[in-house]
Design a protein around this nucleic acid. Structure first.
Lengths: 153, 153
DNA sequence: CAGATAGGTTGCAAAACGCAACTCATCTGA
DNA sequence: TCAGATGAGTTGCGTTTTGCAACCTATCTG
């Protein structure tokens, strides 16, 4: 991993972890590439087939994700295939993908509209992901606040 | 809320909740607007000041977020101010914002680099958000899979 | 009533995106 | 062995989206 952005660009909000994450994966395609990588996609062609993304854009996104330590690219023994795999940091985005998925299930579908479902290895749906406080009680945005970093902290 | 995209556009992947959520808020600014709304920002000027976003883009993003039922816009008694507030669906994005924040803290900062911290109303940091299985044990991407929706399901 | 403040809109240039066609290397079957 | 087929891109070009700066309009304040 390379805790930095491309040369010539700068963080939108350097002190905020939310903003840095958005700078790294907050575009139309990166999160969907990561979603498909978690679902077993490993090759350029497979990502292209699943996403219907323009090929030059896919090339660029895969390169960026590799640069930022989210995907790892390796040449197959095969000779013509390449294999993209999630790094540990990439796999750690699972929580984020689950959060996006659960919000979408709750708010982006009509009640009767079908959608894909994330299940564990025994086919059971996942419980709802919920931020908790130190005391174990659910925590809302209203009950939390951002403590800004001071220079020299 | 209006479970639909703007007229003329279509979902990137209609059956996937992750993709629908990304279609709604997966751009450079929407999530940061939501972050600041959770941190108390309510006016056009305040969002503009905090984010340094171009004014026409901010106008567009606020309009879209209102259209999609994430923000609510109301005229202040004051007469010149408008107030933007998170709807219930908007507040429900707290989990997603926390997931993005925690990933950023773990992977987008050098060990000694300072960053802002999300704390509860007593100033204590939040525990790590972690997807669990039905049995209560932590679940990884590798131990889960996507069950696709079949037409008519 | 002359600023200041809030919340925009408009025009124009730059960057990002999308499509289709082309390249190039390896593999596969006749 | 050589004519496709496959995988992984690259290139050109037109369309969209962004970003910046200037402008506009309504309300409030001294």
């Amino acid at each position: 991993m390379d805790v930095a952005l491309a040369a010539g660009s700068a963080w939108t909000d350097p002190a905020c972890p939310v903003a840095r994450t958005v700078d790294l994966i907050g575009d139309r395609w990166s999160l969907l590439i990561i979603r498909d990588a978690m679902d077993g996609a490993t090759s350029f062609t497979e990502f292209h087939r699943r996403l219907g993304i323009a090929r030059n854009i896919l090339t660029d996104r895969l390169r960026r994700l590799v640069e930022h330590g989210i995907l790892d690219k390796s040449a197959d023994t095969d000779g013509r295939r390449h294999t993209y795999r999630l790094t540990a940091a990439g796999q750690d985005l699972f929580t984020t993908v689950v959060a996006l998925r659960q919000w979408g299930e709750r708010h982006a579908f009509a009640p009767d509209e079908p959608h894909s479902v994330l299940v564990d290895d025994r086919g059971r749906e996942l419980p709802e992901l919920l931020p908790l406080g130190q005391d174990g009680a659910p925590l809302s945005a209203a009950a939390s606040r951002v403590r800004r970093s001071r220079p020299g902290e």
